[in-house]
């Protein structure tokens, strides 16, 4: 009897929750998973739920645009807000996958870094791809991409993201091209040849990775001695007690943005979420969870100095760093990725 009552009560509770849930609309927010998503949950999703404007249903992907395209083309959009990398954002915006943002519903453009403001997306954070190494396994620290390529001085495998984007830039920097000239060189046929030739040298020692969570694991297990990494993932591994270190020299930084897929039935709620997540205080919480820099100019103020030193936007980390050239990758991406695939498969 007692059991029955509690059962009935729990059924009612679940039903009530379901009703309440549908009243305050659920919005599906898709981001790159792992440590990044965990930090977003803390900085954006949970406070947003609490603010009573809606409830976030988180999801993850690896940046593939195919699913969004399929949804938009079938007019059955179930993702309401998506985290997108810059070239995909520009392409998706032109192809009509994303809503053109109405900034009056988010905030003045001048409040944000210029690189973070675009037609269809508003920057969430500044991230960086840099070299990381396992300080327990390497006695001397590498300092540049030239060291990354030096298998005599640092024997062992190296991790690189499987794809042409950034890999070619790294190869050129290893070959002695100054960061400022990288895209100028890569824009020529000879430059592309040069990059692939440099990659040929390292090919037998490369361990490719695809998901951002892989390199910290590969470094920790000793499968690779150094790797290209998203800087935030290393901080997460450091918190777990792994002795991993980041080399900022020659790193490439870029902005990830919020975008709203075209035709989502919850556009208003999506705007509310984007506005909420773009507030400087929420971005500050995010930067404290994972060292990706805020895009709101006021977000940088008041960040703990220790955290600020690990952000890609810290002045000492920007020295020798390179901003990703979105336009270059929008233009040449398909061709170079194809060429890269052919090269890697050989």
């Amino acid at each position: 009897m007692k059991l029955d009552k509690s059962f009935v009560r729990s059924v009612i509770a679940v039903a009530a929750m379901a009703v309440a849930g549908s009243a305050a609309a659920d919005i599906t927010v898709i981001s790159f998973g792992g440590a990044n998503q965990k930090a977003q949950a803390k900085a954006f999703y949970a406070p947003f739920d609490k603010s009573g404007q809606g409830k976030v249903v988180p999801g993850e992907y690896n940046g593939e645009q195919a699913k969004i395209k399929a949804m938009v083309e079938a007019s059955n959009v179930t993702w309401d807000v998506v985290e997108v990398e810059s070239p995909e954002l520009v392409r998706g915006c032109e192809e009509g996958l994303y809503e053109k943002l109405d900034y009056s519903r988010i905030g003045p453009k001048s409040d944000f870094l210029p690189k973070a403001v675009s037609d269809c997306g508003i920057g969430i954070f500044v991230w960086s791809t840099a070299i990381a190494y396992n300080a327990d396994k390497l006695k001397t620290a590498p300092t540049s991409w030239a060291d990354f390529w030096d298998v005599k001085k640092f024997p062992g495998k190296r991790g690189l993201r499987k794809g042409a984007k950034f890999t070619l830039e790294f190869a050129l920097m290893a070959d002695g091209v100054a960061p400022a000239d990288v895209y100028k060189v890569l824009g020529t046929k000879a430059g592309v040849e040069r990059a692939f030739k440099k990659l040929d040298e390292l090919k037998p020692s490369i361990q490719w990775w695809e998901a951002g969570a892989q390199p910290p694991q590969l470094l920790a297990s000793g499968d690779v001695v150094m790797s290209s990494v998203y800087n935030g993932r290393i901080a997460a591994a450091q918190k777990e007690g792994k002795n991993l270190k980041v080399v900022w020299n020659g790193s490439i930084y870029d902005v990830d943005s919020w975008a709203i897929p075209k035709g989502t039935p919850k556009r208003d709620e999506a705007y509310k979420f984007v506005k909420f997540a773009s507030q400087p205080e929420n971005q500050r919480v995010f930067a404290g969870e994972i060292p990706y820099g805020p895009t709101h100019l006021k977000g940088i103020n008041g960040i703990d100095a220790k955290i600020a030193a690990d952000l890609p936007t810290a002045p000492q980390n920007l020295k020798g760093a390179l901003a990703s050239n979105t336009e270059f990758w929008v233009e040449n991406g398909e061709d170079l990725e194809q060429r890269f695939n052919a090269w890697a498969a050989r």
Partner: peptide, 16 residues
């Protein structure tokens, strides 16, 4: 419009 992006993308396959 998306049409121009489609044309541009298609022609880019012919020649980067």
């Amino acid at each position: 419009s998306p049409a121009i992006a489609a044309v541009a993308k298609r022609l880019n396959r012919e020649e980067t």
